[in-house]
Simulated assay, not measured.
Amino acid sequence: MSTIELSGPPNLAALYLKAVLSAPTRNGAELPETEYVRPDIVVDRDHLADYNRTCGFGMRDELPVTYPHVLSFATAVRLMTDPEFPFPLAGLVHIANSITQYRPLLVTEPLTQRVRLADHRPHPKGRQFDVITDTLVDEHVVWTESSTYLRRGEPNESEPKRGVEAVEAGEAVASWRLPADLGRRYAAIAGDRNPIHLHPWAAKAFGFPRTIAHGMWSKARCVAAFEGRLPEAYTVDVDFAKPVLLPSTVEFSARGADFALHSRSGKPHLRGRFS
């Protein structure tokens, strides 16, 4: 595996343009064996405050467990727009996410992030792969993430299920009204400007009646509901199910280490578990 060091965050606008222009030529079979390393990341307190407000976290010196995902997002897009990456960026579906925090990360700590792709494998609806991100402080890994993406295509034989699909988290304990502009607000913070989160016409082109919320906003909002009750080290896994339409009202349920986000009719949007 080759390693490339970045001097700063990649330019997302340029990467999105590259993704559009290169989409027709992407028909490979293997993931690139490249790791991008971005050292000396300094957390912007104003950016963190915006993230906390949007996702429901309080203002603390510790980073929310989902916040490093935002810091690494542009680097992940850089990997998925490299010439060797086999799939068009548009149409990839984020289906699962697992984060492990080995100890709290402080807003004052300079961070290093290492991002790579792994485990290209069959999925019943096509192919799937993982984006692996390690966040380091003083050369020690303190946070790691695996984001699983699906490329729809020819059906494949099912593999053993992973994740938290069987979670039943009990009766709703909270109801959240989500505004129509939530996708645009989160995109401004996270950089994830997929048009299905921003514009109703784009969402309809992909089969949605209106814009949808980001999966990682949904995960962050659920984790925020546990703030003050979590240990210093833990893993939080989620599987994403039905998209959250905007605007809408969603219900949050929790029982023990399990939690879920679902519509008022009971359709699951997200299932999660702490361990």
Rank of each mutant, 00 (worst) to 15 (best):
L178W: 02
R127D: 14
R255M: 12
A225T: 09
I196K: 05
P200W: 02
L270M: 14
A74E: 01
S218Q: 04
R60K: 14
G256F: 08
R162E: 11
E33P: 00
A14G: 14
K267N: 04
L6C: 07
V77C: 05
T100Y: 03
A205G: 08
L150P: 08
V250W: 00
I212P: 03
R264K: 10
E109M: 09
M80E: 07
V43G: 08
S72K: 00
Y16R: 01
H123E: 09
R127A: 14
V137G: 07
C55V: 15
V164L: 00
D40H: 15
G56M: 10
L31D: 06
T112V: 12
H199R: 02
K18H: 06
L48K: 11
P9F: 13
Q101P: 05
T133C: 13
M59C: 11
K219E: 10
V131L: 10
D138C: 01
P122I: 05
H269M: 03
S146R: 15
N97T: 03
K219P: 07
F73V: 05
H214S: 03
D138H: 11
K125P: 02
Y51E: 07
K125Y: 01
S248D: 12
L245R: 03
G266F: 07
E154V: 12
M59A: 15
W201I: 10
A118P: 02
E157N: 13
E168T: 11
P243F: 06
F274H: 04
E168C: 01
Y149N: 07
E165G: 12
G58L: 13
I4E: 14
D181E: 12
S248E: 00
L182R: 06
D134Q: 15
A202F: 01
R60S: 15
T66Q: 05
E157R: 14
A233W: 06
S146M: 09
M1Q: 08
A241P: 00
S218M: 06
P9Y: 04
T135K: 05
E109A: 14
E157F: 02
F259K: 09
A29S: 15
T3V: 15
P86N: 10
P160I: 00
H197C: 04
E109R: 08
P122Y: 06
Q101S: 15
A224D: 08
G207Y: 09
Q128I: 06
F85G: 01
P110F: 07
E251T: 00
F208R: 02
G266R: 06
L79M: 09
S265T: 13
P68V: 12
R151Q: 13
G58Y: 10
G91L: 02
A188L: 08
T135C: 15
V115A: 12
H214M: 00
